[in-house]
């Protein structure tokens, strides 16, 4: 992992800070925000190997979530991405947890890899968030089909993306999605989202 001070935002070239505001105006349907660069660990293990799964769950302080779900624990989130694959996202550097997980898993058939450098995260919120994402993704974003805490991998226009619904209010604040995107696609994804949000009114949050 490079020095913290040398890490550059994936969207630095867009100069977003210049027109960022503190909050979305009521007439704007969408708010976009670049999230801090994530600290991510990729955890691979076969959940049928109960000893390894238990060791990982104990170390993380949560039950490994089911397919398509995110699990929350103190200071970290676990995303289930496949039958034998999870992501662990946390605040701050991932190295300490990586060491702890490796020690806990010992010789079992499992892998822990730090992958945060390859990804960027964008937060999409607002009453029109579901409509906006539906324009570029074949997933069903209806509240009946995409509930809070769900994690789904799909496309955002032509880029691979991982969607997580963090909160959803019926009132004016709308849904809040976290989109994880390959770092090299972050610029493309942001421009696509900003363009597609034009008809709803876009606020860039700081």
């Amino acid at each position: 992992m490079p020095e913290e001070t040398l890490r550059l935002s994936a969207l630095a070239s867009l100069g977003l800070a210049a027109h960022a505001v503190a909050a979305r105006a009521p007439e704007q349907g969408i708010a976009l925000r670049e999230l801090p660069l994530p600290a991510l660990l990729n955890l691979r293990l076969d959940p049928k190997e109960t000893a390894a799964a238990k060791a990982a769950a104990r170390t993380l302080g949560l039950l490994l979530p089911d397919l398509g779900q995110a699990g929350l624990a103190k200071e970290l989130v676990a995303y289930r991405l496949g039958p034998d694959e999870w992501w662990i996202k946390m605040e701050g550097p991932a190295a300490a947890l990586e060491t702890k997980l490796r020690a806990a898993l010992g010789d079992s058939h499992a892998a822990v890899t730090e992958i945060g450098e390859g990804w960027a995260q964008i937060e999409v919120s607002g009453p029109q968030a579901r409509s906006l994402l539906a324009k570029g993704c074949p997933l069903d974003f209806h509240p009946r089909a995409f509930a809070i805490g769900e994690v789904k991998q799909s496309l955002l226009s032509k880029a691979d993306a991982v969607y997580r619904l963090i909160s959803d209010d019926d009132d004016a604040s709308g849904a809040l999605f976290e989109i994880t995107i390959r770092r090299s696609f972050a610029d493309y994804a942001w421009r696509w989202l900003a363009d597609a949000a034009g008809e709803y009114g876009l606020a860039v949050l700081s």
């Binding site: 496949g82 039958p83 074949p138 991998q153 799909s154 496309l155």
Partner: peptide, 9 residues
């Protein structure tokens, strides 16, 4: 693993 999804994926 993911349920019904569009062919484009």
């Amino acid at each position: 693993y993911c349920g019904p999804r569009a062919e484009v994926e």
